[in-house]
Design a protein around this nucleic acid. Structure first.
Lengths: 198, 198
DNA sequence: GGCCTATGTTGACAGCGGCAAGATCGAAGA
DNA sequence: TCTTCGATCTTGCCGCTGTCAACATAGGCC
């Protein structure tokens, strides 16, 4: 992990970190691979050896994004009680947390076609996120796994969480995005609770 | 409206039309101003005289997008009965219709920061969309206009419609996006009905 | 010790958005 | 009717981008 040598040591990791900063700074739409390389202190063509092209880098970044996304939901669940229905609501709060804290990453995952979603690692990461929510809803509703009833309920909960996260992080729902902290949490919980759970 | 003359006649309109095609073809992220100009059969610098820069063009396009968006909701409402609650559900269906039929335009409006949302025309178009839904929910719930109760309910309905539209148009909710026609409508309605209206 | 491959660099290319300077046209006023 | 003037459109340039090919370096394996 030498700092100044010709070979970097862990350039792949360094590029991913730089890309996260670039993404937060510039957003998905203005993302520049050359700027990422500059941030990492490396020539503009170096990333190609690790990610192929810009799509490769964004695909890897999206896979990491899904992990952070799940972690954000899990963090709220850990803070909440063990009641299954509370867990669903907590996950919804975490969903919105993630959209607000890492908006660009959220958009990369949910509103961009730059990543390659056929990529196995990315597909797996996405499936893990779906599985996470699905399991929560299954517990809260008592629906059998893979039952039509469950998928229908998951769709409703997911859509509500996602809609809130997207609208609030974009500033489209000013009635909520103008709030902060506990007040915002309360407003989001109110909306989440409007979705029938049982 | 001469076709082959040096001066186009209505290049502004022609550019907007070409931009709609470009948007549908390439998506927001790969949108190219020069390609729009080529589509319109005009030099690459011509659009600048009508829209300033690419942001200007996309801003104008987004404003038109909002009108189409409202029209899509209205179309479903017209097909539905006059019951206020049915109207809300119909608008939700129209919301999803729009996201599926004009995905790129939907993304331009809801998940892009390329347009300038400070632009008065665009801000007005966006406010009109909010007002449209808000009025529907007010009628369906009997809440007073501008009451906190109403804004809270609007948030819930809006989020559900938006979440469904976004997830389905992105193919994230395969359980719904794999359906078509009446089957899909039914699945969406089921999810929409899970949001409490009264 | 000597090669070999992974990992870097440099330089080129076309396409992009934006700007400046020139060409063309339509219309308004002398 | 003629002329001038401003709006509209073109051409050409700039720096930026992503990608590719050719070359440099270094660490590991025989």
């Amino acid at each position: 992990m030498k700092a100044e040598s010709y070979h970097h040591g862990d350039l792949r990791r360094a590029l991913l970190d730089a890309a996260l900063v670039e993404l937060a700074d510039q957003g998905v739409e203005a993302f520049s691979l050359r700027r990422v390389a500059r941030r990492a202190g490396v020539s503009h063509a170096a990333p190609a050896h690790h990610f192929g092209d810009v799509q490769g880098l964004l695909t890897a970044l999206a896979a990491e994004g899904y992990q952070r996304f799940i972690a954000a939901m899990q963090a709220r669940q850990d803070a909440a009680g063990s009641d299954p229905q509370e867990a669903v609501l907590a996950a919804g709060l975490g969903y919105v947390d993630f959209a607000l804290a890492e908006t660009a990453l959220f958009r990369l995952i949910h509103a961009s076609n730059k990543p390659d979603y056929e990529d196995p690692a990315l597909a797996a990461a996405g499936a893990a996120a779906y599985g996470h929510i699905s399991a929560l809803v299954a517990e809260a509703t008592g629906c059998a796994l893979c039952s039509p009833e469950l998928t229908s309920r998951v769709a409703a909960i997911w859509a509500q969480s996602h809609g809130l996260a997207d609208l609030v992080s974009n500033g489209r729902l000013t009635s909520i995005s103008s709030l902060t902290g506990a007040e915002r949490d309360r407003a989001i919980l109110t909306a989440l609770r409007r979705v029938l759970l049982d």
